[in-house]
Structures are given as structure tokens and as C-alpha cells.
Design a protein around this nucleic acid. Structure first.
Lengths: 195, 195, 195, 195
DNA sequence: AATGAATGAGTGTTCATTCAT
DNA sequence: TATGAATGAACACTCATTCAT
């Protein structure tokens, strides 16, 4: 088996376990077993548990950023862009949705926090979103609100629909996710014409 | 000191520590020290760490339910009730908001998950919300949507604003929280009349 | 069992194992087993393996220094003092002879070396000896030689007789040790009158 | 590269590392890197780490014995022989002095000890010395003493001067070493005529 | 024959839980 | 009853050894 395969095997197994059980509750033995690899092998590719975790986080960030940048077109409206990017992200959800959820757990490590603080999935995504929200606001495409808070909530809603929900429920389809995002973000729950 | 006092002391200390550091990162030594109690004493009241955790979860649920039931008035509209209940919950937020966060961590335990599944804060709250959403829908107060998903999202938005946000940002005021809930849940981001 | 007993038990066991097998080859499991104590118990008294080692070293140094200082009398000749101090040291040899040997192994730890450098048994003892040798030389009691080298050798001879020798041979009696020290240090192997 | 070269390369590298860091602290990776050889290659020449160590010990012994036998001349006095042999040994000190030091570390291995007991550098050298001392004693060249103990001490003094001292001090020159051996072994520290 | 990626037994350390006082 | 000293199972990580290439 090519070394790259083994590295990927481990990353995949670790991602699965981290997403399922969290950082602390994931043991290296477990990762090794899931990856069908000797425990020592993990350490030939990653210095330690923390680095393994970081690597996974980093990969997700890179990939999501690429997707977003590929789709983003400033000629179009904010919501247009939002839904197209969403569409692309949801395309390879299978590899990533659980991982995204990890972003919520980074705070678990006292020490790690500082070091990787700005590399957090959450930070990167909301930062990105915030910038776009600000532009949209200037163009009058959305109501006035703090873009920082708004981007934070949008991110949380996305996570809730793509990841959180599927713990304990059947995963939502791509279309359903988009519908609910539209419902909550765009128009709200109140009927348009409560005559 | 009466035994009930000791029990409460421990519960309070554990709640604080669980909320601050999470389940795994909370040690019984820590809880004992915060509670100003011998470590062994904890075990005279609780069988083990897991039960201590469950108890705390349970207490929060009960209290929240009481608050909700006290405020709920089916003569009024859904949103009216929602905001009044929210108001009351936020009132004693200091004791509970961090705990709510715990609901997110329950999944941390592979084994625990199954056993305490139905005792989850999350499940109770969303179940409650779901029931009310269904009624509101029947009355035409809100747009048609799956009440289960909707209640889930609403809960997540609530957690995001009251708890998640304050990791890394200044906590939002009660008023701000209500504003954002209104913005996202009730009316959406799109300006009302983009003629 | 009084806590002091346990602490002493552990120190004794660790001393034995360190002296017998060296630092690296001594496992905490081994120490625990020899001390007839749970492994965790060691960590209630000592932060880690290194500190356990340091403590042992420190204790020996303190005790030896006390013995030496009690016996030292600058009114008397160097050799007189030397033999009286030797006498006292050999008195409680049973607790310490093996430990003394540890001084040779301190170099094993890359990191430790720097931290405890000046606390080394060897350094303390030879430093002490050196000072006395210098005085003796000024008084003409011994031949001219570098006191630093001389003290080093004297220490090594002492270790050889009290400790090294007993690995693989019956230990030498107190009297024998003194005889050999006199033979090598004081008069040399050459017969006095090789007529 | 001829296999014999590779073997020598490995032995040399291992000798260096054992001498520098000791048995336990020497890793096979380290040896392989120093020898500029694949790690697996080591195992084509030596069954395991222990055997590699033994081989090195053995080699030193053979070489020292050869040197000694070449110089030894029973027509001459004990001390004459001693100093000439010493001279020769010190000649190729660069390759071996650190190795000699290893003799002290053999005890490090609980299990190994028994198996290689009779192959110990120490044992061979002191055995040799003992024989010569016995002869010298019979000729009246040295004072009466147990040749076994005396040879042991002589060996320790030699190690101390050639090897131990240089940890933490500038190495002594060949001349200095001989001077100190003469001082301690031959005549002692007491001035000849303390009138 | 030579290699180094892969392995898992073994190490130091932590912490929930027990139990003698 | 309340305690905290004692415990050992469990964890992250290391390294001698193996084996497919």
C-alpha cells in the first residue's frame, strides 16, 4: 500500500473518530484500529495527537475556502452567492460535515486554543462570511445588523442543519437544507401576509 | 451542615466545572475542591461521575420546564409566548446558560449517549418547542415547515446567542439576544420592501 | 500505615532500583512493586520520575554533608579527619552505598543534567574534598598535586570500594575498606624499603 | 561497498553512540544514521541490540589483550610493564577510551548481566591484572594485599582518569594520566620525608 | 542484499473510584 | 457520616524488531 494511502487512511479514521466522540474521547488506539493500522504507524506521519487534529482541521478549512472562492462572484447578489456556495459545499458533505462540527470543540483544549486559535474552522468561515455580509449590507441587500453576530448565527444554522441534526435524526437532503436556510435566514417564520 | 446543603454544594460546583471545562476535563478532585468537600463525600451522594452529570442535566431540565410552564399562556400568540418565556429564561441565565451548553457535549460519551439519550436537555427543550410550533402552525401563525426541524434550529440559535457566542466574544445583552432572535426567526434578513 | 512510612518505602525501593538498574532501566511499575505500593501512590508523593530521583540524590547529599561536618575538626590533620569521616560514613553505609553510585549515572539525562548539575552528589562531595585537600597541601601534609583531580580520584576509589566492588563480590568490611584506602591513598603499593 | 565495511561502519557508529549516551539511550535509528546505513541493515549483521553491544565489548577486550600481550615482558618489573602497557593503551585511546566506560554500564541490564557476565570488559581486564599483581607480590615488588581488590581499584583509577574525568572537565593528557597513576598507585599522597 | 515503513509491547502519567479511619 | 490516601485501568507516546519491496 502506498504511503499516501496510509496517511489518508489515518486522517479519515481520525476525522471520523474526532467528529463522533470528540478530541479527548478519541484514543490513538481507536484511530489505529479504525484505520486498520498499527498504533506506531500514526506517529510516523503525525508528531502527536494534537498535530493530527490540527491537520484535519486545516484540510477542511483549505478545501472549504477553495470551494467558496471558486463559486464567489461579486457581480451577483449576496443570497445568490450564498446559495451557490452552499450548493457546492453540500456536494462533498459526506467527507466533511462531521468534521465541521469539530470547530465547536476546539475550545476543549486549554493549550491548543491559543496556538491554533486563528486557524479554527469557525474563525475562518465566519470571518469570510462577515466580509461578504458587510458588502451586502452596504448594497442594501440585507437588513442592518452586526455582521459579526449575523455571520456567527448563519454558521451555526449551517452546522445545525448539516451536522448536528444528523445525530439522532435522518440526515436532511441537500434540498431540505437549502429550504430551511432560506426559511430562517431569508424570510423568517412569519407568514408574508397574515391578513 | 445538613446533608442537603452538601449535596447542593456539590451539584453547584460540578455544574460550574462541567460548564467551564466539559465532561472529560472535569476531575472529581476539582469538583471536590470547588465544593469545599472531601472527594469521597461526592460518592456518598452520587454513584459515579456519570450520575452526577445526569443529575445536573435533569435539574436544569426541570427548572427550565417550570419557567416555561409558568409563562406559557395559550390565549396568546406563539411569538408572544416565545418572547416572554425567553425573557424569563434569560433572567436566571447566570446559573444556567453555561449548563445549557452541556447539551452539546452529551454526545462526547460513546456509551453514555444511549443510556441518557432521552434525558438530554436538547431533546426535552426541542420536544417542548415542537409541540408549541405545531399548534402555532395550525393557527396559521407561522409558515408551514417541519416543526421538528424548526424547533431544532430555534434551539441552536438560542444556544448560539446565549452561550456559544460568549466564547471568544463579549456576551450579548438580554436585549440584543431578543433582537437577533426576532431578526432571524421572525422576519429574516431580507429587507421588507426591496421595491 | 502512616503516610510517612509509605513515602519512605517508595524512596527506599526507588533508591534500590535506581542503584541496581540505573535511571532509564528503572520503571515506575518496578518501583511500585518493590515498594509494595500501587503505582499511582508514587505520584501522590512525587511529581514524576525525575523528581523522585532528585529527592533521593538530595537526601544522600544532605546526610553525607551532615556527617562530614559533624566529624570535621580543623585542629587535626587531613588524614585524621579523612579517616574519622570515612568511619562515620561507613556506619550508615547500608542505606547509602548503592545510592552513592548513582552520582555516576546522572549524566544519562540530557535535560536533567543542566537542572540538577550543581546538585550532583559527585560535585558536592568532590568540591568538599577539594577544599580540604587544598588546606592540607598548604600545610604540607600531602604531596603537591591538583586538588581537583586528586579529590576526583579519591571519590572514585571510595565508590569503588564501598559500592562497585559489591556487584559480583562479597562486600568489603569497614576495616578492609579503610585499609585499602590507606594503602592506595596514603602510602602506595611500593614497599617502604625495597632494599 | 563490501559487507565487511558495512559491518565495521555499524560497529563504529554503535560504539560511539553507546559510549556517548549509554545502552538504553542509544536507539537503533541513531546507530543507523551515524553509520549511514539503513536500519534494517544492522539486523543483517547482528541479531539484536544486545548482540551488537556484546560484539563491541568483545572487540575491545580482544584488542586490549593484544596490546597488553605485545608489551608484557616478564623479565621486567611489574611497574615497568604496567607503565609500558598503559602507554600503548593510551596510544589508541581515541577509539577506545569511551568504550571502556561501557564496562560500568553493563550492570544496567537486569537480564543481560547474567548472560554476558564473563564477557565483561571489567572482568577480563581485572583478571589479567590480578594475575600479574600476584606475580609481582611473590617477587616482593609490591606490598602484600589482596590482588583481586587491588586490580579492581587499579582498573577503576584508570577508568576515572581516562574516561570519567572528561565528563565535565578537559581531558587529561597522556602524561598527566601517568603521573596521577604513579602518585596514587605507586607512592601515595604522603610526602616521603615529612621531617 | 539492503532498506525503512509498519508494528505493538512497554513506559510515564492521570484520574475515577474505593475503603480504612 | 465524611474523608483523602491508595489504587490500577487507561492513555499518549517510544523504539526494537520485522518484512515486503
Amino acid at each position: 500500500m502506498a504511503p499516501i494511502d496510509r496517511r489518508k487512511q489515518i486522517l479519515k479514521a481520525a476525522a471520523k473518530s474526532f467528529a463522533l466522540f470528540g478530541y479527548k474521547a478519541t484514543t490513538m488506539d481507536q484511530v489505529a484500529k479504525i484505520a486498520n493500522v498499527g498504533k506506531g504507524t500514526i506517529y510516523t506521519f503525525f508528531t502527536n495527537k494534537e498535530e493530527l487534529f490540527d491537520e484535519i482541521l486545516h484540510e477542511v478549512i483549505i478545501e472549504m475556502k477553495n470551494v467558496a472562492e471558486r463559486e464567489l462572484d461579486h457581480e451577483q447578489t449576496f443570497f445568490n452567492n450564498l446559495f451557490r456556495i452552499l450548493d457546492s459545499l453540500l456536494e462533498f458533505r459526506e467527507q466533511h460535515d462531521l468534521l465541521i462540527k469539530l470547530s465547536q470543540e476546539v475550545r476543549e483544549f486549554g493549550t491548543l486554543q491559543a496556538k491554533t486559535g486563528n486557524a479554527k474552522v469557525e474563525g475562518v468561515i465566519t470571518g469570510y462570511l462577515e466580509k461578504e455580509l458587510r458588502l451586502a449590507q452596504e448594497k442594501g441587500e440585507i437588513k442592518p445588523c452586526d455582521p459579526k453576530v449575523a455571520s456567527f448565527i448563519m454558521f451555526k444554522i449551517y452546522i445545525a442543519l448539516t451536522s448536528d441534526w444528523s445525530h439522532g435524526n435522518d440526515p436532511l437532503s441537500k434540498e431540505e437544507i437549502k429550504q430551511y436556510i432560506e426559511l430562517f435566514l431569508v424570510h423568517g417564520l412569519v407568514p408574508d401576509l397574515p391578513v
